[in-house]
Design a protein around this nucleic acid. Structure first.
Length: 795
DNA sequence: TTGCGCCGGCTTTTT
DNA sequence: GCCGGCGCAA
């Protein structure tokens, strides 16, 4: 294998520096706190490093690797270090390199689970019935195949959507179940057809000499399980194993690790059960909870000293996560300052929330909030679901506040990029049927379903690839007219491009440009008049630029199949907007956590589908969110929010109730509603608070303890006696009745959002109101005021 | 074959 | 309220 020689070439360099380090006292050890140091120095046997947020996990992990090398316990190529993301892998490489004072290309087995499995599987492809140049399908290709299989099996794809099948098969692969290993209890899935379809899918993949992401792990696990000799070879090679983010491993990854760890059990897993937020995609928190059982005699080290956040922020996060059961348990502490309390604020609706956050950010940026001016780069808005981003984007666009959305559609997932890549794939290997299918009619060549059908049958009948089939169709006139001519040209072009790839006469960058021009793909977007066309052309240019860093097209395609990197953009300071999931591992001086409303966060769907387990994962997400903040954390919620076009009232999140009051400061909303800041007056005069109270009351049956939220408590009872002696039920009834009895049919009313209208029906606490501007709506009674009073509401 | 209009569905996302 | 997928009409 060529990779062997590469590895060996670098070994010398790294070992040298490793020896140099061993000679002098290890400076990297002095940098560590006692817990970190223990985790680094416990070299033998299994180690579980429980690393809370911001406790220097990566530092400990990289120091451990350096220590292993420095102590001469292993050569760089005998250390297996796995991460989940390429970003994490890259960071580890950089940091190790920095510590060793040179590059560590000599660590060939530091990478993501998937990248390492690709490397292994290419060496042993034949054991999985593949050729070593197999292609890696992305989710899109996968879905198309599943759809084809469903159609072929005459299954109604309305009732049994391909997405569902993909989900089922992915889930099975995550659990390392090959088609024959799917347990009987699961066989009912997809109208009892999933197992058969799964088997067909695997067969089809083998025909295509392709694997999907799940297969990378699954094939390797199967090989290790069935071929002791192969397993033994790698057990011997990998003297030390290190795993990052262990709480995110799924069953397949877990089995893979256990197999490789063998008897020596020199495995060090780093993770934080409190940050397990990927259960929905197969991660098993159980893996980390079970570690000591799986690896008896394990050293467990807790990293609890936090270097990131202030005391109040840590305490707030700890208070929330404490409500989860079955934790391994950690107590984060900091030697730093208490800092500012976590701020909590409620708003009337989502737009107002966005407006407030925008103003707050501008104030912080200008230093007018009593703190030193802060760069926009130091602020982030973390949301539960990406659709929440829109409100902020809209607002920031209006006020001209620069922002960046992190984790949107990734560069390599964009349509134009995928199309272009399909052309490249065809040039590299004309047998790539999926690539051919993708671009055969892009740009439009007058080749519709019928033509493609014909090509497919012809190819099938002759046992050749689709490109070959297409050539036959064009020659034999099976596809006629304009389409036929276009098809003949395309086939000819593919042949020529492939020839040019082979004889390497042109650089691959030139070739790529040529392919995009000749195929008509560039002009396709040049002629496109839609507003996004220029952006797409730009992306294509960027793609070609990205090619420059690679030796050839093949190398590039290989890289891209595994690495979905965002095109990086630097210029100018910007506020970051991203989901909580995307924020994991990041940190910002100031963090905004909007949308803390029950149903949105925690997400209703998560709770419906996964019950308590789902809720606990949501809570961990809350914990992740809060612990992203270094100095200032602001949580907010809105009483009303537009969900799928409908206005809905919402309760403050139950997680707000769990914030320890001592570490939270409740902000009163700005003077928009009534100006007076006296608590009692606020509660009486402010529609915001009436709305809050009302919505809480509305849901009282499901949520008995909503009144425990510090925000609510303070705002409602600041001037009253502490303690909630009054029975909730009774109070609820009182206010509820008031609210309902306030209106009768025919009343003219005013609503903050919909304006003036007339009550046309009453049902319980809901009013049907015919609004002058907004049409007929069902509105909860407490959100409207008699029209006459509305004139008194200050704006 | 393509383009348009309607209907349904709708967290989170890495590899 | 928006997007994507499908079916139908030209």
């Amino acid at each position: 294998m060529s990779s062997h020689s590469e590895e060996d070439a670098f070994e010398g360099a790294v070992s040298l520096s490793a020896r140099a380090m061993a000679a002098r006292p290890a400076p990297y050890l002095d940098d560590l706190n006692p817990a970190q140091r223990q985790a680094v120095e416990a070299l033998d046997g299994p180690v579980l490093m429980l690393a809370g947020a911001g406790t220097g996990k990566t530092k400990a992990l990289t120091s451990r690797i350096v220590h292993l090398l420095a102590q001469g316990r292993a050569r760089p190529d005998q250390v297996l270090a796995v991460t989940f993301t390429n970003k994490a892998a890259r960071e580890m490489k950089t940091r190790i390199g920095r510590m060793l004072g040179e590059t560590v290309e000599g660590m060939p087995w530091l990478g993501t689970f998937h990248a390492i499995c690709v490397k292994l599987l290419r060496r042993h492809a034949e054991l999985a019935g593949l050729k070593s140049n197999f292609t890696i399908l992305d989710t899109d290709d996968q879905l198309r195949l599943h759809k084809q299989l469903i159609v072929a099996a005459n299954i109604d794809e309305k009732r049994w959507p391909p997405r569902m099948l993909s989900g089922i098969i992915d889930g099975w692969k995550n659990r390392a179940w090959t088609p024959d290993k799917v347990p009987a209890a699961e066989a009912g899935a997809f109208d009892h057809k999933a197992v058969a379809l799964y088997a067909e899918y695997q067969a089809r993949l083998r025909e295509l000499n392709a694997v999907d992401f799940g297969d990378l792990l699954l094939h390797m696990v199967t090989i290790f399980q069935t071929r002791e000799d192969v397993l033994a070879q790698y057990q011997a090679r990998f003297r030390y194993i290190l795993v990052d983010e262990y709480q995110d491993t799924n069953v397949a990854q877990y089995l893979w690790l256990r197999l490789l760890a063998g008897k020596a059990h020199n495995i060090c897993c780093v993770g934080d059960d409190d940050q397990s937020i990927y259960g929905w995609r197969g991660a098993e928190v159980g893996n980390i909870l079970r570690f000591e059982k799986d690896f008896p005699g394990a050293t467990v080290v807790r990293l609890e000293q936090n270097y990131r956040s202030t005391g109040h922020i840590l305490a707030a996060a700890s208070g929330v996560i404490a409500a989860n059961k079955g934790r391994l348990g950690k107590t984060l502490w900091t030697a730093g300052e208490e800092g500012e309390k976590v701020r909590l604020i409620g708003h009337w609706d989502g737009e107002e929330e966005a407006r407030w956050v925008g103003e707050e950010i501008e104030a912080m940026q200008g230093g007018t909030r009593g703190m030193a001016p802060m760069s926009l780069d130091d602020m982030a808005i973390l949301v539960r679901a990406s659709h929440q981003m829109r409100a902020f984007e809209d607002r920031f666009l209006t006020i001209g506040l620069p922002y960046r959305v992190i984790g949107g559609p990734r560069f390599y997932e964009r349509m134009e990029i995928r199309d272009a890549m399909a052309y490249f794939r065809l040039a590299v290997s004309p047998e790539d049927d999926l690539a051919f299918e993708r671009v055969v009619n892009t740009p439009k060549r007058g080749l519709g379903d019928k033509a493609i059908q014909t090509i497919q049958t012809t190819a099938r009948a002759n046992g050749v690839s689709l490109v070959e089939g297409a050539r036959l169709c064009a020659e034999d006139g099976l596809v006629k007219g304009k389409g036929g001519a276009a098809l003949a040209l395309l086939v000819k072009q593919i042949g020529r491009w492939h020839g040019q790839v082979l004889d390497e006469a042109d650089t691959h960058v030139e070739l790529a440009e040529m392919i995009l021009d000749e195929s008509g793909y560039t002009s396709h977007w040049q002629n496109d008049k839609t507003p996004e066309a220029p952006g797409r052309l730009e992306n294509l240019q960027e793609l070609v630029k990205a090619l420059e860093e690679f030796e050839n097209l093949q190398g590039f395609l290989e890289h891209v199949a595994l690495i979905m990197d965002n095109g990086s953009e630097a210029e100018g300071a910007k506020v970051s907007i991203m989901t909580l999931h995307a924020a994991k591992g990041l940190e910002f001086p100031a963090v905004f956590l909007p949308g803390w409303e029950d149903g949105l966060f925690p997400s209703q769907r998560s709770m419906d589908e996964s019950g308590l387990k789902g809720l606990e994962e949501e809570r961990r997400l809350a914990y992740v969110g809060i612990t992203r903040a270094e100095e200032l954390c602001t949580i907010s919620f809105a009483a009303n929010r537009r969900v799928y076009g409908q206005w809905q009232s919402a309760l403050p999140s139950r997680f707000i109730d769990e914030l320890p009051e001592a570490h939270v400061e409740v902000l009163t909303p700005p003077g928009l509603y009534g100006g007076g800041y006296g608590a009692a007056g606020m509660a009486a005069a402010s529609p915001v608070l009436q709305g809050m109270a009302g919505s809480e009351l509305h849901h009282k049956a499901s949520r008995a303890d909503v009144y425990n939220s510090p925000g609510w408590r303070r705002l409602q009872t600041r001037s009253q006696e502490r303690g909630m002696s009054q029975p909730r039920e009774a109070r609820a009834m009182t206010i509820n009745l008031e609210a309902v009895s306030a209106f009768s049919e025919g009343d003219r009313v005013f609503h903050q959002k919909f304006g003036y209208g007339r009550v046309t029906g009453i049902e319980g606490d809901k009013l049907e109101i015919s609004f002058e501007k907004a049409g007929t709506k069902n509105v909860v009674g407490r959100f409207v005021v008699p029209a006459a009073q509305a004139d008194d509401v200050p704006f």
